[in-house]
């Protein structure tokens, strides 16, 4: 049984590791501090992220850098319309065994890595998308009737380009719901652009230091689930989820803007994501318990892809972020 001092040491270690990761990432990535934090939170919660941003904002660089720092294996798959599921999962190839007999040998696909960057996931056909999504959900793939477990920790970072919608296959809501976070990459500001120019046009920086390994990530992942959550704070999270709904399930706690513009509110998976992410944030901040602020700070990345808006919202240019901001503003901490 752990002692109080053990718990204190764990919390301190988790916080210190995260601070070091951030500092190391800052050597290569300019800005995006919140994004890095959210990706790390998703990693220690065992979730996957959907990244949305225009090309050239450093999505691939960020994911690759994270792989280096965490000494995890990294693979990148460029999704195209002709990409087949086997191109991701791997396939059985005919090969000779030492006795000269012909046998099928499983050739692992790029999915067999700790961190997988699925670039422009919406360009692949739904068949290929679902193969990836199955791997995300089950942490295993089935090829030729035989199941293959994926290495742990396993994390998919899928990207979408919001500009080019021609010839794409948008992910269905049910599949989007499987992503722990949906993160938006914003265009860098003037100072950040200037720093990017300095960083990328001068001599390349040295290799990144390895800070955590897979085992340490898994250890932190287990600690996250032990972070206590007060009933009052949990009730706040539940009321936030209910407030994103437009129908009678809101239990009278609905918000006017949600009633008007939301077609479907967040799923229960949204609540799981919200609470788990809040616990991770508390742990990485060096606290033994979850606060209201922890919940509030992860509402947008956890729920923005789980709130489905109606046509009126489209017509009026209402975004899920605006709905969620209003929900956070209107729902009181204690009912």
């Amino acid at each position: 049984m752990d002692s109080v001092e053990d718990i204190e040491q764990r919390i301190a270690r988790a916080g210190r590791s995260f601070a070091e990761v951030k500092a190391e990432m800052a050597r290569r990535i300019v800005g995006h501090e919140a994004l890095i934090e959210q990706v790390f939170i998703a990693l220690v919660c065992g979730g996957h992220c959907l990244l949305e941003g225009v090309p050239g904002l450093g999505k691939t660089l960020m994911v690759r850098s994270l792989g280096e720092i965490l000494s995890l294996s990294f693979s990148r798959v460029q999704f195209t319309p002709d990409l087949m599921p086997a191109d991701i999962t791997g396939t059985n190839l005919l090969a000779d065994d030492p006795s000269g007999r012909k046998i099928f040998e499983f050739q692992r696909g790029p999915i067999f890595a700790n961190i997988v960057l699925a670039d422009e996931i919406n360009r692949a056909t739904p068949k290929t998308q679902s193969a990836l999504l199955e791997a995300m959900q089950e942490a295993s793939v089935t090829v030729g009737g035989k199941g293959h477990h994926l290495e742990s920790p396993f994390m998919v970072l899928a990207t979408q380009n919001p500009l080019e919608m021609e010839g794409t296959y948008p992910l269905p809501e049910a599949q989007v719901d499987r992503f722990f976070f949906k993160l938006l990459l914003e265009y860098p500001g003037r100072e950040e652009l200037s720093r990017i120019a300095d960083l990328t046009t001068a001599a390349p920086p040295g290799a990144l230091r390895e800070i955590l390994d897979g085992a340490a990530i898994l250890e932190i992942r287990s600690w996250v689930r032990e972070v206590p959550l007060a009933e009052t704070v949990k009730d706040y999270a539940v009321r936030l989820i209910l407030a994103t709904h437009a129908g009678p399930e809101t239990d009278g706690s609905g918000v006017e803007i949600a009633r008007r513009f939301v077609l479907y509110g967040s799923s229960p998976r949204g609540l799981q994501s919200l609470i788990l992410a809040a616990k991770a944030r508390a742990l990485l901040s060096g606290r033994p318990n979850v606060s209201f602020e922890d919940i509030r700070s992860v509402v947008t990345p956890s729920l923005r892809h789980r709130v489905i808006l109606n046509l009126e919202a489209d017509a009026e240019g209402i975004s899920p972020e605006k709905i969620l901001a209003e929900v956070v503003r209107q729902v009181p901490e204690v009912s």
Partner: peptide
């Protein structure tokens, strides 16, 4: 600024 320590 107890970050819900009192509540918990």
């Amino acid at each position: 600024h107890l970050d819900e320590r009192a509540t918990t």
